[in-house]
């Protein structure tokens, strides 16, 4: 298995998913609208004022990201399942890791689009200085963490009848470290504190661990 073959297989699956999405636009518009709604609902729920804004707003942003991601992640292999294409995909001489990384990249693109829309709107609505370069590594690493586990858990939940219900139940407890670290890192960006824990490093470690485990175990989840 050369790297080039792997790369081509991955891009082919990724491109198929992206083209489907570009033609139907089922997922990302719903995700983006949902993320914005969460941001707005949080504003009412916490009665944001100048004095509590910096503490609460980063939480609202990440809850919006996680909830919106769940919508998109839930559809990771739905297309394959509904049309019975997973069997055919598995019959192809495709490395299972290529399928995982293609699905992961697809999810990253969908969530990324939503985040690119949501972060500026968040900065405007909450009037916080988050729209800086410092937010990029936090959002990128946090999103990789969400998508790495979300992709494989979506495939796990797809084994059952209750996949939409099951995915958040399985995913959220495991994402606690990412959510804590991302919220704390975003808070530090808004309101720098000295001697804070290395949150970005924690997310990066989480990403590396779960990307590798998921890549190795994904084949057991999709094969029947």
């Amino acid at each position: 298995m050369t790297f080039r073959l792997f790369w081509n297989q991955m891009l082919a699956i990724l491109w198929k998913d992206l083209r489907c999405e570009l033609r139907t636009r089922q997922v990302w518009i719903s995700m983006a609208m949902f993320a914005l709604l969460v941001l707005i609902v949080f504003n009412f729920a916490f009665d944001l004022r100048v004095d509590n804004k910096a503490a609460v707003a980063p939480g609202a942003l990440w809850i919006a990201f996680v909830f919106a991601s769940t919508l998109g992640l839930g559809r990771t292999i739905t297309a394959e399942q509904e049309k019975g294409l997973m069997d055919r995909l598995l019959l192809c001489p495709v490395d299972r890791k290529a399928i995982y990384f293609a699905k992961l990249l697809g999810n990253l693109v969908f969530i990324g689009v939503v985040e690119v829309i949501a972060v500026p709107i968040f900065a405007v609505l909450y009037d916080l200085p988050v729209f800086t370069g410092g937010i990029i590594p936090i959002v990128v690493l946090g999103t990789i963490g969400i998508a790495a586990l979300g992709t494989i858990f979506s495939a796990i939940a797809a084994n059952t009848q209750a996949r939409e219900v099951l995915l958040p139940l399985l995913l959220f407890p495991l994402l606690v470290p990412v959510v804590i670290a991302a919220v704390k890192a975003t808070q530090a960006l808004v309101n720098p504190v000295s001697g804070d824990a290395p949150w970005i490093g924690l997310i990066a470690a989480f990403d590396v661990i779960f990307l590798s485990i998921s890549a190795v175990t994904f084949q057991y989840v999709i094969e029947e």
Binding site: L149, I152, F153, A155, I156, N159, L170, L174, F210, I213, S214, T217, Y220, V221, E223
Partner: peptide, 9 residues
């Protein structure tokens, strides 16, 4: 198999 993966992760 799915449960085994969940048990590991």
């Amino acid at each position: 198999r799915a449960a085994a993966v969940l048990g590991i992760i």
